[in-house]
Deep mutational scan, measured.
Amino acid sequence: MDPFVVLVLCLSCLLLLSIWRQSSGRGKLPPGPTPLPVIGNILQIDIKDVSKSLTNLSKIYGPVFTLYFGLERMVVLHGYEVVKEALIDLGEEFSGRGHFPLAERANRGFGIVFSNGKRWKEIRRFSLMTLRNFGMGKRSIEDRVQEEARCLVEELRKTKASPCDPTFILGCAPCNVICSIIFQKRFDYKDQQFLNLMEKLNENIRIVSTPWIQICNNFPTIIDYFPGTHNKLLKNLAFMESDILEKVKEHQESMDINNPRDFIDCFLIKMEKEKQNQQSEFTIENLVITAADLLGAGTETTSTTLRYALLLLLKHPEVTAKVQEEIERVIGRNRSPCMQDRGHMPYTDAVVHEVQRYIDLIPTSLPHAVTCDVKFRNYLIPKGTTILTSLTSVLHDNKEFPNPEMFDPRHFLDEGGNFKKSNYFMPFSAGKRICVGEGLARMELFLFLTFILQNFNLKSLIDPKDLDTTPVVNGFASVPPFYQLCFIPV
């Protein structure tokens, strides 16, 4: 058959498939802009700032609406009420993970971030239990974070109060905490193996944040037939998995079943207990991918939040002064901060919360999916439909947070200066898919920041009023603009 005829037939089939998918069930789905064949609503979305586009569309179609990214149908949730109703009140029905062709290629359905069903539930339950087990290797997770915080302070001392970009050092600290939990080992910041790991993690975040990856996920045929950065992403992930597998083999040879040292040991012990169960989800494949998931999810998000926190503290020296006064009063100079201190430091706690609220790190979270046909607000959402959640619409709700575009710790303080919780605080998402490392991340943010401010004054290279804190939105995360500062020993 003539190649031209084959091409026309293929394009015609794709067009018909697109029209059929977009028209099927439209009477039951939430409203939304009319999609174009094949490309859907992509032309109506700013790929570099999806969150802003969703906010604009919500003003037209309401808090629940339908979009098509290519052939992929998505239902968008915008605003606290619908997000709570879906992710919390109907948590089980909305607990699936959205379709990610690239991740599915890399992870093969294993791990904790992109798995679904029984596998996801069992691996998540085990990971939560293990991360909360403060007795691994007779050292609590808090001990590990405190140790890394001391190392971080010593690295900052080496800058000798000269101007520096904190990106690298602030990236090393949370990565080392995860390494300590998974591998029972922290690395020197100049260790070549550690630097290679950091390089792969950072490069992957840069790649994932590009519009090209959005295109690959919406048109998965590209993955096999086109060159691009997605190939580098898959190569980096394969490198990390190979490295983790080597460490798993080392653990198998040296493990003491009665004295687990780290996450890998705990997983291997669980595998041993379930070795007679042919349906067990505790396999080497799941261990390797879960460890890679924890490394990827637990490094860049925390380091970016820390980097943004220091920029905001530079911009608002009056806030920094209040935090340091609270540190001096509650902790002093002669001991290290600990998590028990947080309950006695409402202002510092409010500042950490406000940093996370203000920066809105992951504006749309990772997409969910419905696990069955769901009736939601008089609409029928078919099983498997991807759910896109606007966390921006919750964290920047102007009824809950007056002047949401302003950095103001009073958003989390009552009139008496006591810490005030808010149900709208969802930087880790909400419901059954809430970030498994939430507790660890909150511990790291509090301890790293208090250790830094206990030991250093922060000095800006320019007038604080002239510092730009506008986030650089890159399609996946909101990151701070480049800046330098000086760490002046107190």
Rank of each mutant, 00 (worst) to 15 (best):
E122L: 09
R108I: 04
D256W: 03
S162P: 01
E104T: 15
D256H: 07
N474G: 14
R150H: 12
L90M: 15
S390K: 02
F4C: 13
E405M: 15
L366K: 04
N107S: 14
L440A: 04
H230K: 07
E104Q: 09
S180E: 11
T302Q: 06
E444I: 04
A321I: 15
P211S: 11
V64S: 03
S303E: 04
F114G: 08
Q276G: 14
V5K: 06
I112P: 04
F476R: 09
P427K: 01
N133L: 08
P166R: 01
L311W: 06
V351M: 12
G384A: 05
R108S: 07
D262N: 06
K383S: 10
T159A: 09
G91F: 09
R157V: 10
K235R: 14
A173M: 04
T371R: 09
R377V: 03
T469G: 10
T385F: 02
F282C: 03
G137L: 12
R108L: 06
I223C: 14
H99W: 11
Q146I: 15
P3C: 10
Y61Q: 01
L294I: 08
L87E: 03
G475A: 14
F134A: 13
E328W: 15
F65T: 04
S51R: 14
A161Y: 08
G117S: 07
I141P: 08
R125H: 15
T348C: 06
A350P: 01
R150A: 14
V64N: 02
V208T: 08
E300M: 09
D165A: 04
E326T: 01
H316S: 07
N116L: 03
N231W: 11
S478L: 07
M136C: 15
D414Y: 07
I213A: 11
M271A: 11
P163C: 10
L54R: 02
V351K: 00
V248I: 12
P174F: 07
C179V: 09
F407Y: 05
R329A: 12
V5M: 15
E274Q: 09
L170K: 00
P382E: 05
P481N: 09
C10R: 00
S242M: 11
R206S: 10
D463K: 13
Q454D: 02
T55A: 14
Q192P: 10
N378W: 03
I222T: 08
F219A: 06
L29V: 08
E415K: 12
I88C: 14
Y189F: 07
F267C: 03
I488S: 15
E281A: 11
C164T: 14
M406P: 01
V472G: 08
I269T: 12
N455P: 00
F94T: 05
M74F: 09
L156N: 01
P31R: 08
G98I: 05
L453Y: 03
C164S: 09
V76N: 00
T34E: 09
D256K: 08
I362L: 15
G384V: 00
V473T: 15
K421R: 14
G70M: 03
T66D: 00
K249Y: 12
V352E: 00
G27K: 13
H368M: 03
G416D: 14
D256C: 07
C435R: 00
